[in-house]
Design a protein around this nucleic acid. Sequence first.
DNA 1: AACCAGGACGTGA
DNA 2: TCACGTCATGGT
Length: 237
Amino acid sequence: MNKIYQIYQILYKKYGPQGWWPFINYEGTNENKQGSAQGYHPLDYSFPRDTDEVFEVCIGSILTQNTSFASVVKSLHALNSRAALRPKALKEMDPDTLKLAIRPSGYYNQKALYIREFLSFFEALDGAVPSRKELLAVRGIGEETADSILLYGYNQPEFIVDAYTKRILLELGMIDKKARYRDIKMFIQESLKKNIKDEKELLRVYQEYHALLVNHAKLFYSKKPYAKGCFLKEQFR
DNA sequence: AACCAGGACGTGA
DNA sequence: TCACGTCATGGT
């Protein structure tokens, strides 16, 4: 068993199933979940349950760029209260109203543009699963956002590498500080593939692992100096 | 009152 | 490719 998989086991045992992605209209979703051991919809992998929920993951993924998810939830509720958390309705919303609704998430001018660009792309898909390459061609969708959409919106086995992931692995001495997104992603994916042969299981691990890393990072890697009290670091260095 | 948050993009070396 | 500035609100 390699280190990457060991860390997963430890985090899962510690925090339990996280049940990402959070959906604002799902009763089990705890919006105030913050570094807790409580998941959003733990062990329920039936998500997203319809096209609107796929869309919600996409919009949420764009809005959460360099922004806390608590702020994103406000924006999603603002859209939802206007019945605009659906492609058709959102497309009919005028730009200024959209900006106002997503204002809590910051960068509202950019993100409003990104969302409008994504809308056209999403409608053209007509229910099909987008390729990673296609997603990356959409303005405002970079590697992390693309992987977020694919992993949680379309149940595709694409591991998400975010700032927390880099920070934790760097602190544990497992990656170089100059490591690129691709490098880290492949390192993690290849490590997990060596231990997990079942594709369905691999997908769930990708989904849970990223959620676990975020949860863990919120507890030990938010404020500098990082890793104070981190039990992973005590065990792996 | 700085500092950070579940990044992406444009620009000039 | 790479380093850096810009985008912005809200919580601690």
